[in-house]
Simulated scan of single mutants.
Amino acid sequence: MAADLATAWHGLPHAFGKPGLCGKLRQRPEDFQVSEQLSFTPSGDGEHLLLQIRKSGWNTGDVASWLSRALGVKRRSVTFAGRKDRHAVTEQWFGVHLPGRWPDLPELPPGLELLQSTRHGRKLRLGALRANRFRIRLTELQGPREVLHRRLVRIARRGVPNYFGAQRFGIDGGNLAGAERLFRGQRVSDRPLRGLYLSAARALLFNQVLAQRVRRNCWDQALPGDLMTFSGSRSIFPADDTTACDPRIMALDLHPTGPLPGIPGMQPEAAARELEERVLQGHAPMLQVLLDYRLRAERRALRLPVAELGWFEEDGALALSFSLPPGAFATAVIREIIDIV
């Protein structure tokens, strides 16, 4: 099956109908700002140097490579909690394993600014974030404003579908093109690159299952047989006869999940399983490759709560602020508000 960006992202249904407004995103890096919130408080001592860096025009990997050269350590000694876009202003944490050393950091190149440094006893690992805080400006808005406030209130109350954003699929869907090569039996020796391709394939499958639940208006409700998860938790448990009426669903604390396919683990049952199998049955070659590379199946929440959502209009633009959990995509929120042109 051909996997393309239109299938993976652009053609996905909206939870609250297609937005009546259109506009532009990221005309300047300052229009898209994000700040990482760590899931822990640095201890102030230990073998690992933690650096909070504000960057613009740099991708995360390039900053990590510069730090390894500047501090004279191997690239694998530099870690980060999350990947952030080059075309944005981002405040991001990096960790450097420097036992017994607190070197002076050379002057940072243009586009990088050191905000603070401290020490910690443990390695900074990918995903070690409590949240990402976004400040986004949408410009050149066109269309009726009457329903904008109502739509934003609905998003604050119900959240949005937790789609993987277009970034996961690469520039012009390049990661999906790479996944297609794997499906055709071609070998990709670069392990990190192969991981990106397999991750894109799983994201496409998840988005397709979620899209079907959006069409059926059950993306934020528990179906019989669903596997559930709590906000901020990785634990998965089966729904029971009382789950559909659990007030924690309405409170945006308890969510149904969808599949990140691989070697099977806990499986949904009843209506939830039937829906997932119907969507995935047309993707047999993709599923087989995920099994061949021995990826273990995981689950991901179908709903994305949008915390601390605030907004105001100025000079024909819409300024937004909100927080999302790690692994979520701000574009999944924005696409429910306006149609990006």
Rank of each mutant, 00 (worst) to 15 (best):
R75I: 09
V78L: 01
A70E: 11
W93F: 06
T90F: 04
A81L: 00
F94I: 04
R69D: 15
P99V: 15
T79L: 07
K84P: 05
L98E: 08
G95M: 02
A88K: 01
G100A: 09
V73C: 12
K74T: 09
V96H: 07
G95D: 08
E107Q: 11
K74A: 15
E107A: 15
S77H: 11
R101P: 03
V89E: 07
F94A: 03
H97W: 11
V78S: 04
V73R: 03
V73L: 02
P99D: 13
G82E: 15
H87L: 12
P99W: 14
G72T: 07
G95I: 02
H87E: 14
D104Y: 00
L105S: 08
V89A: 01
H97M: 02
R75Q: 12
S77E: 14
F94T: 03
G100H: 05
R76F: 13
E91W: 00
R101K: 14
H87S: 11
D85N: 08
G100T: 08
E91F: 00
E91D: 15
K84V: 01
H87Q: 13
K84F: 06
R83P: 00
L98V: 09
A70F: 08
R69L: 12
G100L: 08
G95L: 01
A70W: 09
L105T: 08
V89Y: 00
R83T: 06
Q92M: 07
D85K: 06
W93G: 06
R76L: 12
L98G: 04
D85L: 03
P99Y: 14
G82V: 10
R69W: 11
F80T: 10
T79G: 04
F80V: 02
R76W: 10
V96A: 09
A81K: 01
A81V: 00
V73H: 07
Q92P: 07
K74R: 14
D104T: 14
L108H: 04
G72W: 08
G82D: 13
P103F: 05
P103M: 06
K84H: 04
R69M: 12
A81S: 11
L108C: 12
K84N: 04
L108A: 14
R86N: 09
L71F: 07
G82F: 03
D104M: 12
R69E: 15
W93P: 05
A88F: 04
F80Q: 10
A88H: 03
L108D: 08
F94C: 01
W102Y: 10
R76N: 14
G72Q: 07
P103E: 07
G95V: 00
G72H: 07
R69P: 06
R86P: 12
K84L: 14
T79K: 01
W102S: 15
K84A: 07
F80N: 01
Q92H: 08
A88D: 11
V96L: 06
F94S: 02
L105V: 08
H87N: 14
G95Q: 02
R76V: 13
L105N: 10
R75W: 02
R86M: 11
D104A: 15
D85T: 01
A81H: 04
G100C: 06
P99R: 02
F94V: 02
S77M: 10
A81W: 00
W102R: 15
E91P: 00
E91Q: 13
R76M: 06
